[in-house]
Amino acid sequence: MITKRQYVITYYYLVRALFFGAATSYLINTTGNACYLSAIIGIGLGLGFSYLLYYINKVKEEKKIVDYVGRGLLANGIKLLLLLIGVVLLNNVLVSISTMAYAFYLVSTPVIFITLAIAIVIYYALKKGIKGFLRAIEILFPLSIIIFILKFSTVFEAMHLDNFKPWLNSDLKSILKGSLVFFSNTITPGILMLNFQKSDYEYKNNALGYLLGSGTILFVLILIIGIFGMPLARMLRYPEYMILKKVNILNFIENIENFLTIVLIIDNLVVGVLATFLVRDVVKSWVKKEKIIKWWDIIFLLGMCLVSVYLFNNHYANILRLYRYEYILMLGLSLSLIGLILWQIKRLDQ
């Protein structure tokens, strides 16, 4: 059961989440000064994709997607894709939060400790159940909006129009590639919305959640370019964090970037929790042994912690691969999944 308001808020969080870390930086590097144009094209594509999600949710009615697709080869294919999307998203969450925390705050803390701490928060949310979790993020939503307004209004003054020039100095190929990067990173977490049971919302709720989330990303991109200029924005690994350093409220409150980062971490935790819920549901549909189901969350989270630390955090080359190719992987998985689900809907109709 999810209310309309919770649906909009959850979608808002999901859309924003992957833009903490690799996505913002990669988009700026790919498209240069025209990144906001790529974002606008990406939003257009994303709204189309949101309609597909809305359609699937409408068709599956009260069921979760895992239950709706039923059994058979096609259903298993869909479940496998859902599992892979869950794994990729959770890995992204663990890697981006731990890398950022390790780089800026906890420089002498072993990364595995940071990752385990995130896993514990996710596990705690799982234990509280989806209802409690949705209520929690509903409460946190005003904080996210207030911090966004605070950030935008206080940092706005530091922007320079000259930093946007030369206008649209990118070729069409880069702009289109950038829009795919934006599209891929905003729509893939949205897949997690298929796992909710209630579907009494309308497309406008879906579109509102997507527009709110992607709109805030667009504003942040404009802030980054306007403040740092393109050459510096390209050099920075966490430009969205670096602009928080410029927040200065009436020359009285400054150096509050660490506090403001909480919003970016909450976005990621929402994805992490919902991805783990989705993976659990897929595994539940395959494995009937009670014992495995009981310990699955702990085993899965521990496994993902080890993967994110020993395969990614400790190997920069792999992080670089993630940075460059993750959007292609996510795009492939998301489009294949939606294609297969639509096919299954057609089959079930017949």
Partner: peptide, 11 residues
């Protein structure tokens, strides 16, 4: 400093 470097790397 960061904005100074931003200026330094500009054309």
């Amino acid at each position: 400093f960061d904005l100074l470097v931003g200026k330094y790397v500009k054309q």
